[in-house]
Amino acid sequence: MDTPAPPLTPPVLSTLPVPSHFAPERVGEIWRVPYQQRAPEAERWAQEHHIPPAEFDRVRVGLLLIDVQNTFCIPGFELFVGGPSGLGAVEDNCRLCQFIYRNLAHITQIVATLDTHTAMQIFHPIFWVDAQGSHPEPATAISAAEIRSGRWRVNPAMAANLTQGDLTRLQAYALHYAEQLEKGGKYPLIVWPYHSMLGGIGHALVPAVEEAIFFHAIARGSQPSFQLKGASPLTENYSALSPEVLTGPEGDPVGEKNESLIRHLLEFDALIVAGQAKSHCVAWTVSDLLQEIQARDPSLARRVYLLEDCTSPVVIPGVVDFSEQAEAAFARFAAAGMHRVRSTDPLWTWPDFPRPLAEET
């Protein structure tokens, strides 16, 4: 018996409605996703709206969601990204969920990165002590000069866990690390509050976004890809594609590029990017992606779309504001050929969006 042909993808001009289960007022809250209820609803939704399985997509569209986790996106959590409005990540995720639902038929796969940490890492307070044995406060910047002077030194307790008890080696590495950040034009070494702790609730995806990802997976028969980053104790990992520092003072490896993810992202006909924070993990991920694109084929930059209204910069009132750095990064990406777009604009109005989608209208 012949297998029936898949239904045609709905025209771009008739974007899908948002399912009734989506509750905008709950985007900033923690709750359990009702998987057993949503799964059959997603299957019925696909049938009702003639949504084909993702395997039949003639244009493959990837949606890269960077660190859309409770630790960054729920008010009151460790590193909530409030942005200029004070509710940035919540507002971003409300728009993001609606974008996923409206464009369900055209998103081939969702790739979600997860910032992943444990207690003893170079950017957490426990790693450092001053002359009195006190740990630095969160948001403290530690320079190479301060490590040389002894203003900040490695907590001796770290050596037993990270370098088989060799404190001298770990102290030398810490200085090397701060120097490499400064030489490479990176952000300085920042002490962050404990966040995205592996196994903790902060590490989990925001429930509303997780629900949208699950609904997409069932409706389109498309397995989402979850990418963990940041587990190396001796380097920050803002970018989902590469840690901040790759080698130690003697050339020994500290971390490595995620080559398989880089290849996967560059295989999409269009790649849409959103997440948190615009000034840090989003900016550094896109920067690393651009570097890979320029090394391969600079024209590939035109395939990348940055959802400007689904990402916010780090802003800590009275302490630090990275809005200017975020804007400068996005301006550089646009100058290289990437597109700054809004989630509320239809895909067919986006510049350079793959023509087969538009031709179906």
Rank of each mutant, 00 (worst) to 15 (best):
D2K: 09
L8E: 14
P10E: 03
P17Y: 02
S20V: 11
S20F: 03
F22V: 09
A23Y: 10
V27T: 14
E29P: 05
Q36Y: 02
P40I: 00
A42D: 03
E43Q: 10
R44I: 14
Q47C: 09
H50P: 05
P53F: 11
V61Y: 10
T71H: 14
T71I: 05
G83C: 03
P84K: 03
G86E: 06
G86I: 06
L87D: 12
L87Y: 11
G88C: 04
V90S: 06
V90T: 09
R95W: 01
C97I: 12
C97Y: 12
C97W: 12
F99Q: 13
I107K: 01
V111H: 11
T113Y: 06
D115F: 13
T118Y: 12
A119R: 12
M120T: 14
M120V: 15
Q121H: 05
I122W: 09
F127C: 05
W128D: 13
V129H: 13
D130G: 13
A131C: 10
A131G: 09
H135R: 15
H135G: 12
H135K: 15
A141Y: 07
I142H: 01
I142D: 01
A144H: 02
A144T: 05
E146C: 00
E146K: 02
S149W: 03
G150D: 04
R151F: 05
R153Q: 06
P156Q: 08
A157W: 11
M158N: 10
A159R: 08
A160G: 14
L162S: 06
R169W: 11
R169C: 00
A172T: 04
A174W: 00
L175Y: 00
H176E: 02
Q180K: 07
G185I: 03
V191H: 13
H195I: 10
S196L: 04
L198D: 13
I201H: 01
V206D: 04
V209N: 03
A217W: 11
A217S: 15
A219R: 04
S222L: 00
L228W: 10
A231R: 07
A231C: 08
L234K: 05
T235L: 02
T235K: 03
S239M: 01
V245D: 08
V245F: 10
L246R: 08
P249H: 01
P249R: 02
G251V: 00
G251T: 02
E259D: 13
I262H: 02
I262W: 03
I262Q: 11
H264T: 06
F268R: 08
F268A: 09
F268N: 06
D269I: 01
A274N: 05
K278R: 15
S279K: 08
T285G: 09
S287N: 15
S287H: 13
S287Y: 08
D288N: 15
L289D: 08
L290T: 13
E292G: 01
Q294A: 07
Q294I: 15
P298D: 03
Y305W: 04
L306Q: 13
S312V: 14
I316T: 04
V320G: 02
D321W: 03
S323F: 04
Q325Y: 14
A326M: 11
A329F: 06
F330P: 01
R332W: 12
F333N: 03
A335K: 11
M338E: 06
H339P: 00
R342H: 09
R342G: 08
S343V: 15
T344G: 07
D345K: 04
P346T: 07
W348T: 01
P351K: 07
P351M: 02
P351I: 01
D352I: 07
F353L: 12
L357V: 15
L357Q: 15
E359Y: 01
